[in-house]
């Protein structure tokens, strides 16, 4: 199915708009839920039951003073948040959200672009996204930021290994790295969470660590590092880091839903509704974790990554490889 250039541009703009709106309301949803978890209301003043709060936040952040601290490396300090946002937004392109359809006589595919190496593309972009945090922390010229950046580097590289290995089980079962193929393979058999429960568990734990969420939010542990890598950031640049973090959360939930929960496939409702529902469930889980668990100590975090998750992921990989090779799958 061929797509016109104009169709691609409009589709990209629409999808990015939807995801950025989703970011704003994930933020609101998180604050409201955390409020409920702690037996208070959460934001409820701006607009009807607080639903204009994200708008108010964005306006506030845009009108704040844009400054660069004295000891900072100006260029890298400015570029770092852009790298983060670029990597997060670009990742949206390969997440499939529906079957192809026809509108006003134009063919539209239900994915930004279905590339042969979709899974690897996502990992490559998340690898680039780290640089936003690391360069930002280093360029701030602040000890807290630097420590946050160093923790980011160590934590993300450690958990990326476990995450990559947990995903390979799914890739072996679907025999493809393309996310669209993986969704179709699940529609033919069953959700891969049934065949890969251990892989899903490892994926979720690693996903929490990769997105710097509690209980793995060591890079921005406010009780010891002020705010970690974004200590010196304010106004719009801080908002960009924030945006990148939440879009990463949405992307990684969408990746989890696509790899293990059947992606956009489901009966009756259109594909993007199913994907949104599955993403919402995973996001709710992330928020629930944050409200429930205390932060891990740094050495335990590393121990969990290297001594528990990595061996488990390897075991899962070996078992899956044997089963697939013997032809029991499918």
């Amino acid at each position: 199915m061929d797509e016109r250039f104009l169709v691609v541009v409009i589709k990209a703009a629409l999808v990015v708009f939807v995801v950025i709106t989703a970011f704003a309301y994930t933020l609101l949803w998180e604050r409201k839920l955390i409020g409920r978890f702690q037996a208070r209301y959460g934001p409820n003043r701006a607009g009807p039951i607080g639903y204009l709060q994200p708008l108010a936040d964005v306006v506030k952040l845009i009108f704040k003073e844009d400054f660069v601290p004295k000891g900072a490396n100006r260029l890298l300090f400015q570029i770092a948040p852009m790298i983060s946002v670029f990597a997060a937004v670009a990742a949206i392109a390969v997440i499939p959200w529906g079957d192809g359809f026809e509108i006003f006589g134009y063919n539209v595919e239900g994915v930004g672009t279905d590339i042969e190496i979709g899974v690897l593309f996502l990992f490559a972009l998340s690898g680039l996204g780290f640089y936003g945090l690391i360069l930002g922390g280093w360029a701030s010229g602040n000890k807290y930021s630097l420590l946050g950046a160093a923790r980011t580097a160590a934590q993300l590289v450690s958990y990326e290994v476990a995450m990559g290995l947990s995903v390979i089980g799914v890739v072996m079962m679907a025999q493809s790295l393309s996310l669209v193929d993986i969704v179709h393979a699940q529609a033919d058999t069953a959700w891969y969470i049934l065949f890969q429960p251990l892989g899903f568990l490892i994926f979720v734990v690693a996903a929490v660590a990769e997105t710097n969420r509690a209980p793995f939010d060591m890079p921005e542990a406010e009780s010891e590092l002020v705010a970690g890598y974004h200590t010196e950031y304010g106004g719009l640049k801080f908002a960009m880091f924030f945006l990148a973090e939440y879009i990463n959360m949405i992307i990684i939930s969408a990746l989890g839903a696509t790899l293990f929960l059947g992606g956009f496939s489901g009966p009756f409702l259109p594909g993007f509704v199913w994907l949104a529902l599955k993403v919402a469930v995973l996001l709710f889980f992330f928020i629930w974790l944050r409200a429930t668990l205390p932060r891990l100590r740094y050495d335990r975090l590393m121990k969990l990554g290297w001594k528990v998750l990595l061996p488990l992921a390897t075991l899962n990989l070996v078992v899956t490889a044997i089963v697939v090779a013997l032809g029991f799958a499918n």
Binding site: I134, W138, L146
Partner: peptide
């Protein structure tokens, strides 16, 4: 990333 980590 590890290079940067060590240098930082």
């Amino acid at each position: 990333v590890l290079f940067l980590f060590v240098i930082a």
